[in-house]
Each structure stands twice: as structure tokens, then as C-alpha cells.
Amino acid sequence: MDQSNNHPYDELLAAYSAGSLPLSQALCISAHLEHCHSCGQRLQQLNHVGSELMQQLKPAKASDELKNKLLGMLDSLPQDLAQEQPREVDSRVPRCLHQFIDKGYDDLDWKRVSADIHSAELCRDSNGAKVELLKIKPGGSATTHTHMGDEYTVILEGSFSDESGLYGQGDFLVRDEKDQHTPVATQDRECICLAVTEGPIQFTGFLHRLLNPFIRRGYA
């Protein structure tokens, strides 16, 4: 369909299907899935794998007590579990991010990172990973940087390019600590990305190297 490096690789999607992926990474996969029909189909197959493995387990029977208790509860269960409250979030925002974004991207608390970049932190995962949105102005560049851990990125709006290619809406990227890259947003419009970083970003320019100890402190 398209270049395979813009989709989550198979073992990552399998971990998502298995429910064994850190939730911060699962957020990125979920955001990608909203834009990618072919990964949605792959996911269904991977869910079948989990389903078949489950069928092969040695059954562990429940007590009659549990069964009677549950059957007795059925009539008094609150029905609201079945109904979801529709919320008025901008349709551009992926569903998995509605929990962090009340209205739309514009209402977030954007903080200036550089002349070209603003960021809005959404949350932290239990493993310490930072989940944030990055906004790069049209034609803007993110300083050359490497990472202490892996970085997961999904493009939500606009597009950018780096040394490896051009990326557009829905594209999913993983960069590890060995990669050095300089993403540049395309000229036509600003670019908004969902970014999950497992460890602090290391800027590799001379001045930035001086700043690194201060940046790292943010992760203590």
C-alpha cells in the first residue's frame, strides 16, 4: 500500500493487540489506526491470534457461587455502561486523545520550545514516558536531536520531512537513541504531532549540549 516504515511494525501492533504495550505507546498506535484502514485489518487478524491462544488454555472452572451471584445481579446492573456520553471535541482530534483535549488543539496550553516549535504536555505514563503534542510552524525546523530512549511520533496535522523522507497525516514513526534527525515542517501549513518520549531529548548542537543537564532535570 505505502512505505512500511510509516506504520507500526508487526511486533509492536501485536503487543498492542495483546494489551501488553505501555499505554503511552498504545495511544500512538490508536491515533495511527484512525487514519489507517490496512493496520485496522492487520489488528483484527492479530486479535484472532489472541483469541485462538485463549481457546487453547486449560479451562479453570468458576464456582457456582460466582455464577449465582452474577446471575442475581443482572437486573440491577446500571445501564449507563452501555451508553456513551457524546462530547463536543473538534473532529480533527483522534478519539483516544479526547480524554486530554476538551475542545480542540487551539485551547491547549502551548509552551514555546524554540522559535519554530511549541509543545503541550498531555500526561505522563507509569514508566515515566512523556506524552505531548508538538506544533511546528510552516517551514519550521526542530533542532537536531537524539533521544535517551525511543521516541514515538504520529502526525496528526500537516506534514514534515527529515533525513529519511516525507511524512504526512497518520504516519507513525519510531526513532531510537541512535538516530539523529532534524524534522522540518512543510511550507504550506503548521504540523501537529503526537509525541511520546521515553527519556529526555538530547540536543546535539554546541549550545544545546550546554543546556542538556537542565533539560534532563525535567525528567527526574
Partner: peptide, 12 residues
């Protein structure tokens, strides 16, 4: 033991 602010409901 390790809290996360991420609600899985809308993810899966």
C-alpha cells in the same frame, strides 16, 4: 503501584 493518567477506555 505506578499510577498513569492515561485512561485506556478510548484507546482500545
Amino acid at each position: 503501584r505506578y499510577a498513569t493518567e492515561i485512561d485506556p477506555t478510548d484507546i482500545f
